[in-house]
């Protein structure tokens, strides 16, 4: 059934739709430009002919990225951090969330306050750096994993989810002789898969995008993750830091911009690939507990 709307209403709807379309274009244009540039020829980039479509289509820039050992080394470091880091994040989140989802647990309130306090007062940069130094974690990938082993915000999301699991289920398991560790592993973990997937994606993207951690704690080139490599490639472009000898033979045919654009695209692709899953899940996560009556 269509309700007839007044002229003013329809104008409003049209203006609204157009403004939103403009917002979408503003988000899309920089991305399209960089993709188009990365696929364009050296000359087209030099003469600023590229707009939103490749000019003189070729894959030379990607050829460089694919054969760039330094890039892949950083890529590997980041993959390692994402995999190990996210695994630790999930274990820590479930271990902490399950007890705290019990409203009756003694000491729950002070413990929650203890954790929420850390969300408001962030650890200051210099003492944090000194702590990592004291723990001999500098220049190690563990400096990027252990200090972010648990996110208070994600833990709160997990607790909210776990509280929706009926207590009777746990009681039945206890009567059957399961102890709490087995309940956590065999009942809580499988039942909380929807939130686990959401949190896993959140954590993984967080590790993938982490720039601050490596900036502060990793100076060793061999251990620098992707974001740090990417930043150095863009801000202080020199062929040496970009990829050493493997680049020299290519450098006559390529422009720094082309290489930078192609590297940006390759570093973005994994996030874009998981984005549909991320979107499907974070809506649930973000809207958790805001049920319309």
């Amino acid at each position: 059934m269509r309700i007839k709307r007044s002229m003013g209403e329809r104008t409003f709807d049209a203006v609204n739709a157009i403004l939103l379309a403009i917002c979408c274009l503003a988000v899309a244009i920089p991305l399209l430009y960089v993709v188009a540039g990365s696929l364009s020829s050296n000359e087209a980039i030099m003469h600023s002919e590229v707009r939103l479509w490749p000019v003189g289509f070729n894959l030379d820039n990607y050829d460089f990225v694919i054969h760039n050992a330094v890039f892949w080394r950083s890529f590997g470091v980041t993959i390692m951090i994402v995999v190990i880091g996210t695994a630790i994040n999930m274990v820590m989140t479930l271990l902490t969330s399950y007890p705290l989802s019990k409203a009756w647990l003694g000491g729950r309130r002070p413990i929650m306050l203890f954790i929420i306090f850390t969300m408001i007062f962030q650890a200051p940069m210099v003492p944090m750096y000194l702590l990592i130094k004291e723990l001999h974690l500098l220049d190690s990938i563990w400096a990027l994993i252990i200090p972010s082993a648990l996110s208070a915000f994600n833990m709160l999301l997990c607790i909210t989810f776990l509280r929706s699991i009926p207590e009777e289920l746990f009681e039945a398991a206890r009567v059957d002789g399961m102890n709490e560790y087995r309940i956590l592993w065999r009942i809580v973990t499988p039942l909380s898969m929807p939130i686990n997937v959401t949190l896993m994606l959140f954590y993984a993207v967080g590790h993938w995008n982490n720039y601050l951690g490596p900036l502060l704690y990793v100076t060793d080139r061999a251990k620098q993750p992707l974001q740090l490599y990417l930043y150095n490639l863009i801000s202080q472009f020199d062929m040496d830091s970009a990829g050493g000898e493997s680049v020299l033979e290519l450098s006559s045919r390529l422009t720094p911009q082309g290489l930078q654009m192609a590297t940006i695209v390759v570093a973005t692709v994994p996030v874009v690939i998981i984005y549909p899953f991320l979107q499907k899940h974070f809506i649930k996560g973000a809207l958790l507990g805001s049920v319309k009556e």
Partner: peptide, 12 residues
């Protein structure tokens, strides 16, 4: 997208 990517896009 990371700030590095956003910086890269702005730079380009």
């Amino acid at each position: 997208l990371s700030w590095t990517i956003v910086f890269g896009l702005s730079y380009m």
